[in-house]
Every structure is written in structure tokens, then in C-alpha cells.
Amino acid sequence: MTLTDTRSLTGAASAENIVSFDESEVVLEARNLSVSYGGAPAIEDISFQIPRNSVVAIIGPSGCGKSTLIRCFNRMNELIPIAQISGQVLFNSQPIYSTAQDPTEIRFRIGMVFQRPNPFPKSIYDNVAFGPRINSLDVNLDEVVERSLRRAALWEEVKDRLKDSGLSLSGGQQQRLCIARALAVEPEVVLMDEPASALDPISTQHIEALIRELSLQVSIVIVTHNMQQASRISDYAAALMAGEERVGRLIEYGANEQIFGAPKDPRTEAYVTGRIG
């Protein structure tokens, strides 16, 4: 096929282009996941597994459904009234969309960091203590705040001004504060939707180093448009592509060396080498 033939971009991945894991290794899984907004399909029939303690990058051209997909992983799409979700998302083998699951609880266990840092207009301390407080967790808040800020590589920079507003920090520090806030409730997975796209190169390096460090303890699913960043930080990468009808499908999911070294699907190759997208 030619790389410019958009009609050929619509097919979903063949099974051998999707890496799979032993069930014991899997923390999060999408099974035949489809989302539509007001009846218009956005992503269709997506199935893949996120292994524990790994960084999984979701890549693909604009409009292919990356953010839609990542928001399904902690029921954030439910906050959009016209969103309809079918298929399953399993967290530790349990369906997160069952009525028995509390969405708020799910969102603490599967935290999220957004493109633009969004600290609360509260002190640095209160930002981090927010989750444990509203969950009424029986913990020593001082310890949780320090531990979370240390894990987010921010402690040394803010330890003497914990009462200052979170909004007084630089953009990169604010993003790490948001990561510390997510970590304070001890999530197993952290979802990140372009967490460094609004940051300068040094702050971006901090975030990337932090992601690698955190992946020793939690799983990270990150949406990024930056192929070099995805290549630097991910263990696995999932490539999404939408055809003319604008429905995103998973075309390939594999180890970092495969996706950024020798992709199996020519559409992945065309995307990561900048020929499309």
C-alpha cells in the first residue's frame, strides 16, 4: 500500500501485531472497547493489555481517539453526557464499568494527570492532602504529603514553602504537584494526557525522568504527540489510526523496540517516521 492512501488507514490491527501478556502481569485491559459521542463513533473495538509497572505510550495522529481511549481507563468519559461506551475495561481483572464499582474510587486508584497543570487554588500542602482528606484515609497527612512530593521529585524545591499557593509554582513544578496529588492516594495506575506538552525542555526532562522512576511502582499510560518522547520513556506503545470516517482503531501494539525500531504495520511506520499525521 502507499503511505498516502488514506483509504488504507482504516483497518484494525491483525492479532499478531498486538502484544499480549500473562493475566497475572496485567493491571488494566481494554476489551472490544468502543466509544461514541452523540451516536458518532470515536474509537472502535479496541483491545489491549497494560502490564504492571510499565510505561505504555498511546500514539497516533490528531483526532484518532487517543484522549478518548485514555479517559475510558478511569471512567472520565462518563462525565461527558453524550458519551456512550461499549465493551469492557478491566482493572485487576474486574470490570470498572460495573454498577458495583464506585467511579470516584476508580479514579483514585487510576489517577490522571492532564495536559495543562491544574493545581487547586490551595496551598501546596492542601493540594497533595486533598485526596487522602476527602477519602477520609486514616493516614498521617504530613507523611503522605512529604512522601508524595518526594516521589514526584518536588520535595526539595517546596519543602520550605508548603503553605504557599500551588499556583505560585512554575509550570513544570505545578505539573509535578499534580503528579504528587495523584500519587497521594497510592494509585496503581497513573494516566497522563500529554503531561509535558505545555512545559519547557528542562521541565519536560524532569517529568520524563519522573515517569521512568514512578514506573518502578505504578503503571503509567501516557498519551503523547512527541515521538521522541514516546520512544525515550515507554516500554510499550499502542498506535491508533483513524481513516476517513474518523473512527480510531488500534493498528499495532508492541514493545518500544518494535514500534520505534521496526514497526510491523506500514501505517505505524509512516506515522512514527513523520510521513503521516
Binding site: M227, Q228, S231, I259, F260, G261, A262, P263, T268, E269, V272, T273
Partner: peptide
């Protein structure tokens, strides 16, 4: 260009 995949190879 920070090339990847086939370009890098």
C-alpha cells in the same frame, strides 16, 4: 530529524 524506525535504520 531525530529519526525513528525505518529512517533510523
Amino acid at each position: 530529524e531525530a529519526p525513528l524506525a525505518r529512517d533510523l535504520r
